[in-house]
């Protein structure tokens, strides 16, 4: 590769247009003439071509490594530790007290119910991610992460969409299930409730939403609400679960 002489921004952008093939015919003609006369310039253009390719190939290489990281360890969940950085100590103490209080309620009231929850909770398998849905790029991008059990990332991405579109049933449903998969019932329940309330009767996930809501309440130890929602879900599995719950 040759020499260090500076290339102006204007010339650089012309070279870029040339390499990308976006040059207009008249400019292209001049450019080609120039290339023929000046071999040093030709080398410089070749160097730029190589550098552009290098940028793309290196970027791809780095992206492949992030893809690969998700293959080898699909379950990376340390969200709680990350969030702790943003909290003050007093808040941590308060949170800890609440967790201990809730934990002891669970401990004394519902350990058989926890077993029911553990036996029956499986995250929704998710929607097929097709290439054609480019208009829903962000939604399906998050869906890919969800399917790889990378729930934090999918929650993050869906939450952004949800801010724009807070009453989207499908979005709320998957946000709810993803939070449940992350064992975060407090956050899951509002999303699932929103799904069941706003919804039209055609909504394909309505029964599933009631079902997950019921499970979430089992996990939370609220057996009455759990029964209510499981009944609304009206599936065979839901009936089986109801029969196992204490009266």
């Amino acid at each position: 590769m040759k020499d260090n002489s500076n290339i102006s921004q204007e010339l650089f952008e012309a070279i870029e247009r040339y390499i990308n093939g976006t040059m207009e015919a008249s400019e292209l003609k001049d450019f080609n003439d120039y290339l023929k006369i000046d071999s040093e310039f030709k080398t410089q253009v070749e160097d730029y071509k190589t550098i552009f390719q290098g940028i793309e190939e290196q970027s791809l290489k780095e992206q492949l490594n992030t893809f690969h990281a998700e293959i080898s360890k699909p379950e990376t969940k340390n969200p709680k530790f990350k969030k702790v950085h943003y909290l003050f100590f007093s808040k941590i103490a308060a949170a800890a007290a609440i967790i201990i209080a809730m934990g002891s309620i669970w401990f004394f009231s519902g350990s058989p119910n926890q077993k029911i929850y553990a036996n029956y909770f499986k995250p929704d398998p998710g929607l097929a991610t097709t290439m054609s849905s480019t208009d829903n790029f962000e939604f399906y991008d998050a869906m890919v992460h969800y399917k790889h059990k990378n729930y934090d990332l999918s929650i993050k991405k869906w939450s952004i969409l949800s801010q724009k579109n807070p009453s989207n049933d499908t979005l709320n449903y998957f946000l709810g299930v993803a939070h449940m998969a992350n064992k975060n019932m407090d956050k899951a329940i509002p999303y699932l409730e929103k799904t069941t309330k706003n919804t039209n009767p055609e909504f394909p996930f309505l029964k599933d939403a009631y079902y997950y809501l019921g499970l979430a309440y089992i996990k939370e130890g609220n057996i009455n609400l759990a029964k209510k929602y499981l009944t609304l879900s009206d599936t065979d599995v839901a009936k089986t679960i109801i029969s196992k719950l204490p009266n």
Binding site: E56, L60, E70, M131, F137, D141
Partner: peptide
Amino acid sequence: NNAIALKELYV
């Protein structure tokens, strides 16, 4: 370089 497509193909 659509990230979803590349990822699906890769994974």
